[in-house]
């Protein structure tokens, strides 16, 4: 189907208004890319973007940095899954997600699992608590362990690796109050220094079972 191209153009006022709108948006687009790349953009750029542009670019989901690295071959690029099981019941079958799911549906569960392991630590376990709470009915208990497992990427010429625990937290309901008890990696627990001990950090004793209470 063809049609003649005519010269219909907007009125000067419309053209000016659209030009202003486009210019503002394009500045916001550039600032979004510069400010969202995580490359250490200047505080000025971040402040300008967050004060002037984010308020109207966030709601329509346009405040995007497009920092699609695809992979860095790092731990964070591994395969993440979330596992919820009844606390203290090693016999009970855990709920594992994405499990055997495939496609975009599985990818969304992976992103959730990755966020719990990578980003949630800065947010006081907000997501882990929510996921544990949301899984109470599925596992039939109000005291559960939420673990995120990470299957490391296979190095070239190397053997496949078994999944490792990326994060773990106990989530329970006590007296109507939701509690999160996060298991910190042993390496992040300060060594217990006893009087009379050698004081040599290489002794390696943590003096705890590696579980810390928030």
């Amino acid at each position: 189907m063809s049609r003649p191209i005519n010269n219909s153009t907007p009125s000067p006022v419309t053209q000016a208004a659209v030009t202003v709108a486009l210019s503002i948006y394009l500045v916001g687009l550039v600032l979004s890319i510069v400010g969202n790349t995580g490359s250490g953009s200047s505080a000025v750029v971040r402040t300008i973007k967050s004060r002037l542009f984010s308020p109207w670019m966030v709601p329509p989901w346009l405040d995007l940095g497009f920092d699609y690295r695809l992979t860095y071959g790092s731990d964070e690029d591994g395969d993440f899954s979330v596992e919820v099981r009844r606390q203290g019941d090693g016999e009970a079958a855990p709920v594992r997600l994405p499990g055997q799911l495939t496609g975009e549906r599985a990818a969304r569960w992976r992103r959730l699992a990755r966020s719990i392991a990578v980003e949630d630590t800065d947010r006081d376990g907000l997501l882990a608590a929510a996921v544990g709470r949301g899984m109470f009915d599925d596992v039939g208990a109000d005291d559960v362990t939420v673990r995120v497992l990470r299957t490391p990427l296979v190095d070239r010429g190397g053997p496949p690796s078994a999944p490792v625990q990326a994060s773990s937290a106990r989530v329970r309901m006590v007296g109507g109050e939701l509690q999160l008890i996060r298991a910190e990696p042993r390496g992040e627990v300060a060594p217990l220094v006893r009087s009379g001990a050698s004081g040599d950090p290489s002794d390696g004793g943590t003096g705890s079972d590696g579980e810390a209470t928030r």
Binding site: S39, G65, Y68, T71, Y72, G73
Partner: peptide, 20 residues
């Protein structure tokens, strides 16, 4: 945006990114 993000990773320079 994608290129800038990728070029910050070693695997995009040493050629191993496709493997991962």
């Amino acid at each position: 945006g994608a290129v800038l993000a990728q070029l910050k990773g070693d695997v995009w320079w040493n050629g191993l990114a496709a493997w991962y």
